[in-house]
Each structure stands twice: as structure tokens, then as C-alpha cells.
Design a binder for these strands. Structure first.
Lengths: 122, 122, 122, 122
DNA sequence: GTGGTCTAGACCACA
DNA sequence: GTGGTCTAGACCACT
């Protein structure tokens, strides 16, 4: 379900939180749905429970989750406007930065289009 | 010349090293050309000299730079084959990962193509 | 337990490492015995945890200690032959250098013997 | 004339200054006698002129030397009382510390006396 | 709580 | 002026 990059310099709790956030926006996990327990998830992705705890806790502080003592963590209802924002503020800039790098490496638009063709999207 | 993302969880020295590596591959800085001194660069991008040094030092260990004490850091002659490798190992996977995320967010190929159109590349 | 000379130009981490090494040779701390935690020791001798860590790390590289992540640093089994070597290579030369200086300052053997008398040794 | 320890963590300018100070106290170099020029000395002991300069400068600040522009550095008249002080404050404590270490290493007074016998002192 | 890493500022040795 | 080292504080991952 989740894949953390061991090598990355980005903290694991941050990687995990980002992935969860994506799943929420994308509605793979829906509002008021229960997340896996800290212990279960930590076992599944082979990291320390404390780290999972930190991800959940951070998402709770940011309003993406809420917790019920003794029961677990649940997805909070989300503001759908945020999706547009995230696309504009995160996805798009990252895309342009990547294309800029591709340009530096001497890639042509044609080659990028070829890559794009290889992906199923619609 | 360089722009570091203060917010990013990726260490500054790592961000900087990556940017320098790109400039070397792209031949904005050529072999045996001198890099800005540690202090000059640290002042310019407003970070601690130590952090710049760590970037330079890492690149030296990886063979991208060589240093002369009391004189400065210089670009080492590079193996151009590595460019192909970096495109395959870094750029392409990052591109696909990004498209995957875009898909999750419900973006269509058409929208991506629109973004692509906005970029000067060829 | 340890006393660092703040004034000395010798790095603190070096002073500390030397003192620890002595304690190990002298078996004040025995093989596989746990050292104080980095933070406990740093608090005790009022220096930055990083400095203690550097001492421990250096001793680990030299084979005097081994570490277990999340548990602590431990004394490695030592080769007792090294004691003789250290006496010959460190203690004795230092002693002779000191006597040489004493001579320059016009001290006589008698005065040195007087100093020696003041120390409990046997 | 001087011997610096390349390995030592003590700064070279400090090592040199200490040695010069000793020679002054011990009257190997007398009051108002001229010291070797910075360039000559730096060549002799194979270190950078700047480093010698720093030693001389420090000794001047501490009152052990005075300089005459265009001529060189000279030994200042010294207060002989300082010799006693240096013996008490430097030599003696260092001696006791060394004996303490010797004790830790299991050396007996007899062995120290044997060492002492090997040195010409009187 | 444990060890490990990143950023930072001051100082050293050298050209 | 150059690169290199030492000390320091905050944060990460894990027991």
C-alpha cells in the first residue's frame, strides 16, 4: 500500500504523511473511514511505530485526520477546493521544474512526448 | 545562480550538490573551471559556509570536483556517458512518478499536454 | 569523572577520548561495560553532545568501543599488549620531554625527587 | 633550533610561541637580542611565514618581545619572578598529572626513579 | 530514553 | 583571500 524510499533524505514520517494525504485527496480512503492501526501499518511497511504515530499526529494537526481515543485514526471530511490548490501549488511547479531539468539535459519535446505516450493516464 | 528551497526537508547541502551536478553535466560550468569560493557562494545564497563546503566535499568524493588547498574547487573532467544514465535513473523515474500522482489527482493526458505546451523546450 | 581543560588548545573531543582510553586500559571501565550515554556525559562535563559523540565515534573507529544503536556505547575487548606500547610511546617520551624542560628552567634532580616524594604511587 | 609536532592538535603558532617563550626564560636568547627574521625562521622550520608572524605577534602582545619596524623582533627584558610562577603553574601540575597517569598504568615509583636516572639533569 | 545527522559560527593553516 | 576543523544546538529514527 505504501512505499517509503529508504535512501531519501526526506524524513520517513514526512514521506508517509504525504502519501496518506494523496490517498485522501484521491479518495482511495474516504471521509470518516478508519486508517490502519499504528501497529498494523508499522508492521506492514516495516518501520518503527513511533514514526507512523508521528505521521498520523502531524496529519491530525493539519486537519486531515481526527482520532478517537482507544479506537483509532479516521479521515476528516475534506475541502475539495484544496485539490485544485495542491495541483497548482505542488504538482504543476514540480512538473515545470522537471521539464526545466530535462531541457538542461538536452532532451527535446519529442522525447518527452514519447515518455508521456508510455503512461496510461486517461 | 542557485536557488535552495528553505522549506524542503531535503538537506540544503544535498540540494546544492544536485544543482551543481546538473550545471556540470549541462556544461554551464566546464571541466577545470573554478567554482565560486566556499565563502563567496555561502554569502550569495545566504547559507553557512560549512554547508557549502559539505556540498563541495561530497561532490569531490563522488569525483565531480577536485580541490586545491588555498586556491579553490574545480570541476573534474567528466564521463559524458553518465548523462544518459542520469536521464534513465533520475529524470525518467521522477517523471513517471509525477505522472502517476497527476493521475491520482484526476488529471487527464490532455491537461498534461497543455502544461507541456506552455514550456519552451526545443 | 572526567575533567577537560577549557583553556587548552587541544580539542575537547581529543582530550576526552584520551581520558576514556586511559580508563579502559586501566580497567576502570571493563570490556563490554556500558559507557555513560552521550547526553548524560555531555551534561555532566558541560559540553555539547556532539563533542562527546565525536570522542566516542573516534574511539569506535580505533576499535576501543563498539556501539549499539538506541542502546549505547560499550567497551570493546582490548589487547593488553597495547599497554606496554602506550607506556613506551606516550608516557615515557612525555616524561623525558618534561624533564628536559625542567632542566631548562634550572631545576635540579633533587627538586624533582622532592616532587616525586609528594606523590603516592606504590 | 625548533621542532614542531606536525601531528599535534595544538596550533603551530602556539607550539612555536611556547618554545620561544621557554628559550627566553632559559636565557638561550637574552634580553634585547634579535630573533631570526620571520622569513628566515619560516624557511628553517618549514612553515608558512604567516604562522611565524602570528607567534611573534602574540608574544609581542604578551610582552615577551618588542618589534622595531624595518629591523625585526627583539626579546623584551623579563621579570625573573615569572620563572618561579611558570614552574609552579605549568611544570609542576604537568608533572603531577603525568605521574597520576603513570599510576593508572600500573607503574611503580621504582620504575619512575629508573627513568629519572636515565636523564642527565644536574 | 538511545545514537545519528544537519546547520551554524569561530578559528586555524596556507597562497 | 583560500580550504579545513572544532564546537554547538536542533531534529530524526529507533528501543
Amino acid at each position: 500500500m505504501f512505499r517509503l524510499d529508504e535512501q531519501s533524505k526526506i524524513p520517513k514520517y514526512e514521506q508517509l504523511a504525504e502519501e496518506i494525504k494523496d490517498l485522501i485527496f484521491v479518495k482511495v480512503i474516504n471521509s470518516n473511514e478508519k486508517l490502519p492501526s499504528i501497529r498494523a501499518l508499522s508492521k506492514e511497511i516495516m518501520i518503527n511505530p513511533n514514526t507512523v504515530q508521528k505521521s498520523y499526529h502531524q496529519l491530525e494537526n493539519q486537519g486531515y485526520l481526527y482520532s478517537i481515543k482507544g479506537k483509532g485514526y479516521y479521515v476528516a471530511p475534506i475541502d475539495m477546493n484544496q485539490i485544485e490548490q495542491r495541483i497548482e501549488n505542488e504538482l504543476k511547479p514540480e512538473f515545470f521544474r522537471l521539464l526545466q531539468r530535462a531541457k538542461h539535459f538536452g532532451l527535446s519535446k519529442k522525447e518527452i512526448l514519447e515518455w508521456l505516450r508510455q503512461v496510461e493516464l486517461d
